[in-house]
Design a protein around this nucleic acid. Structure first.
Lengths: 217, 217, 217, 217
DNA sequence: AATGAATGAGGGTTCATTCAT
DNA sequence: GATGAATGAACCCTCATTCAT
């Protein structure tokens, strides 16, 4: 019975933490971390100010929880795992589309990360280790497989993978967060296909030239 | 004489504003906009707190001035203008290196932009119009020229240009701002050459296949 | 049966109150009344926060109970009652030693009283009536007997008694509570014998008697 | 000119600090340190809450300033210095009266000290070193002189001096702070003369009995 | 009887902004 | 023009008290 009660309590605690985290993300998205008061976050979650501190040690500790909670990793893991040995010509566009979708669904978190991470060295490190690098390695592993199978040329796959995904991130920042889509609209297809196309073939018109050499400029 | 005095006064005002902006950028870089107090900024500029308000209406108004003041445009304009009709195989690496250098020299501003712009719709719009899009158009123009001359394939050059430069930005964010270089060091060459190489040739091993088609996945 | 149950319940209530009072005294000793939270007191007593309010109306009401509960009276009553008509030359040193011992055993309570009583007029009155004056009257009665028997001179015995005991209190405050014993150590004997000696003979060298000898303390 | 301005500013700072300290003492006397809010203190001093922090680092730092500021030392120094080699029969009553007067004028500070010092180990040490011991040594020096001149018997003068002054302190606590004067009024004379008389002659009726020996009980 | 989640008033502290000098 | 003392709104956090379970 005690066990059941404890389990119920834990569930309740998790639920409340979740509600507070959701509320926090909403406020922080529009007002920034400093701008979102604990009172506002609590009220948005439907509880009183003091209740916040039953679930988080401090406002600061909410940040880490927030960042750890949302990440692209689960999504991308599923997608990349499903690729198996699919040739890059098919896989890369798939990844681009999935990545773009994932980013658009996480714009709020992206705003948060861009804003709050750089000032917090510990969190920055944590974020690199827990979110960016894992995602990056996922791509690296797939690309390494492609290189082994000879379907893509030898290149620093970690760097290349980040460059690939990074292009999507930059469009998310400029078009969605900085409001670029109001000034210069770009369709989702335009973005994902251009990014995928560039990553696969580059921009050169006659790429039959021996690759790699020109890079030496 | 009155005119001369007025001119001198204007010069003085500009100088003071400049000192304050520099001081502000230094403080904001390490503490964020909210964390940098007017008092600290003023003291860093060597004046008293009240003096700040002789040169700026408010702390907020300093932000716009700050963002407008620093941009990559002059640098890149010079570089891209100098390219003329240089073939992309040579030009793209040059641009990548210049862009990377410019970014690394402006990390402070990049931090500021990532942190403060997203929350301020007006500034975001302004930043897109005044900084991102001009830079983007610069590249677009060069790439359009290449397309015309047949040296690169037909692709949405505005999108492609942003993707190209965006790769560099993402490395600046992850490696320099998020501290990735402590965890996974990457040399400047590795970054610029991989980015340039990808943009030129893509990742495929046998890019002699008719380009563009595979993208249709 | 009902009566037995009621008695058992009362005993239980008293026990719980006692545990809470002990716990409270321990917390308050180190952190002060304001610094000791109800939660901490309850936890120290091994019960939950809410339970506290089953036994006390409020945190404030705990104070009165706490002060009333501990007092020197029982100890001193026993000691003074046992004196009977013992001459002051013997009795006063005995009282000084017993008083000193009692004070040292009640330092926690002394801290509490010094801290919390002065701000609470009602409690102050209560404390005077219930603790200080009874103790004082105890001494007064003994001293009055001495005066009657001619063993001490006529003096305001209430005042004198308080002065006597007060000397001990002041050493408890300065040496034990203010930490004077770290700076200027004084032995228990030095304190009790000097106090007793002063009270009996005063400081003068020849109150007609042979001087110097009195130093035998 | 700058020097003059600086001097004026320092004077102003001292004045403001003084006003705040006075105001703080008044509030703290009636409400305790914790009960006296910074806002209330500031308002009592006629300034805004924020102004408080221009003159004190924190509320806590006000305490030390407060305690250091008021002490009996200057008064007593003057009195005791003026005694010279005056025989104790005259000097002790003088000291008792001056000490009593000084204590009554500093009841507020006494309340503060009793309440706030015990919980703050650092302040307790400081208070012993800076206030109690210096006062104590003042008396010690005078008593040592008397012993040398043979006017009082050899006794531990530091202990005796504290016992002497301590009697006055206890009357201040019980009569003035605990409200004893409402229950059992005692005139100033009764207190000072009894204390002085006890210190000089003790309580015994025929102190020509060989003193000291009886103490050995 | 016992619990502990929830509340919200209230406190210390910071800081953008004003204004008299 | 330059200063910096003064202001007070607003924030984070604590904790006595209540009440549904």
């Amino acid at each position: 019975m005690a066990r059941i009660a404890a389990a119920a309590r834990d569930a309740h605690i998790d639920a409340r933490r979740g509600e507070l985290l959701d509320a926090a993300l909403r406020r922080i998205a529009t007002q920034g971390f400093d701008g979102a008061t604990v009172e506002a976050i609590a009220r948005e979650a439907g509880v009183a100010k003091g209740t916040f501190y039953l679930y988080f040690d401090s406002k600061e500790s909410l940040l880490a929880a927030l960042i750890e909670r949302h990440s692209l990793i689960p999504d991308l893991t599923r997608v990349v795992d499903a690729l198996g040995e699919m040739p890059p010509e098919q896989a890369i566009p798939l990844i681009a589309r999935a990545g773009w979708r994932g980013l658009r669904e996480r714009l709020t978190l992206l705003r948060l990360v861009l804003r709050e991470i750089p000032l917090r060295e510990d969190n920055a490190r944590l974020f690199m280790e827990r979110v960016i690098l894992p995602t990056n390695r996922l791509l690296e592993r797939y690309l390494d497989g492609c290189v082994e199978r000879g379907s893509i040329r030898a290149l620093p796959t970690l760097v290349a993978g980040r460059a690939f995904f990074g292009m999507l991130v930059v469009f998310a920042i400029t078009q969605e967060i900085f409001g670029g889509s109001d000034l210069v609209p770009m369709s989702d297809e335009e973005i994902t296909e251009t990014v995928a196309g560039l990553f696969l073939h580059g921009a050169l018109a006659r790429p039959n030239a021996a690759p790699g050499e020109d890079v030496q400029v």
